[in-house]
């Protein structure tokens, strides 16, 4: 009887420690997510400045600029940090904005006046710096998500996780446009 109680006690302690480690991993993902949001906020603050400068020169890119403004507004919206699908939606919007901004930066090449504008150059440099930080934050987030997902999906963590309502989280992935192969001939015409 004593042995059974001892075994049960040990089992409870192990289950509790497992639970603690799962919660720590979930919190680490939340921390990483907030790190991404800090960087996304920096980018959001920078986007209007770039757009203002770009508007002066890029008359033919109005639709792109409007798209960027809309996406920026969507990225800025608050979301539920414990809801995996809300997070995925938020990150995918952020990635779409990244894609559109990338497109804008490429199109700047077609406007020599804009390209040589000092304010624009400075804004682009700052933008690149923020992008590097976003990329670092993304790596931290994805590393934390991998750890959490492994812990949640592998038995017996899966049982404890379902009891504690800890779910797998989505990765911050590159959008489909970025994944598409680049056709060099498009640029070498």
């Amino acid at each position: 009887m004593e042995g059974l109680l001892l075994g049960l006690g040990l089992l409870l302690i192990i289950a509790y420690l497992w639970y603690v480690s799962l919660v720590k991993k979930r919190n680490s993902v939340r921390e990483a997510l907030s790190g991404i949001d800090v960087q996304l906020k920096k980018r959001s603050n920078l986007v209007p400045n770039i757009l203002k400068i770009a508007l002066k020169f890029m008359d033919h890119e109005k639709s792109l600029l409007t798209e960027i403004t809309e996406l920026r507004a969507q990225v800025e919206k608050s979301y539920d940090t414990s809801d995996a699908s809300a997070i995925q939606n938020h990150l995918s919007k952020a990635e779409q904005l990244n894609g559109k901004m990338g497109q804008l930066m490429v199109n700047v090449e077609n406007y020599p006046e804009l390209k040589s504008d000092n304010t624009m150059l400075q804004a682009m440099q700052t933008y690149n710096e923020v992008e590097a930080h976003i990329s670092a934050a993304r790596r931290f987030f994805n590393a934390s998500v991998t750890e959490l997902n492994n812990a949640v999906e592998i038995f017996p963590g899966s049982i404890i996780a379902s009891m504690a309502n800890i779910k797998v989280m989505p990765f911050y992935e590159a959008d489909e446009v970025s994944k598409a192969p680049v056709d060099a001939s498009d640029y070498l015409k």
């Binding site: 990483a32 790190g35 960087q39 990329s135 670092a136």
Partner: peptide
């Protein structure tokens, strides 16, 4: 700083 470490160590 986890993010900064990754920013430096690309």
């Amino acid at each position: 700083d986890q993010v900064e470490a990754r920013y430096l160590l690309t």
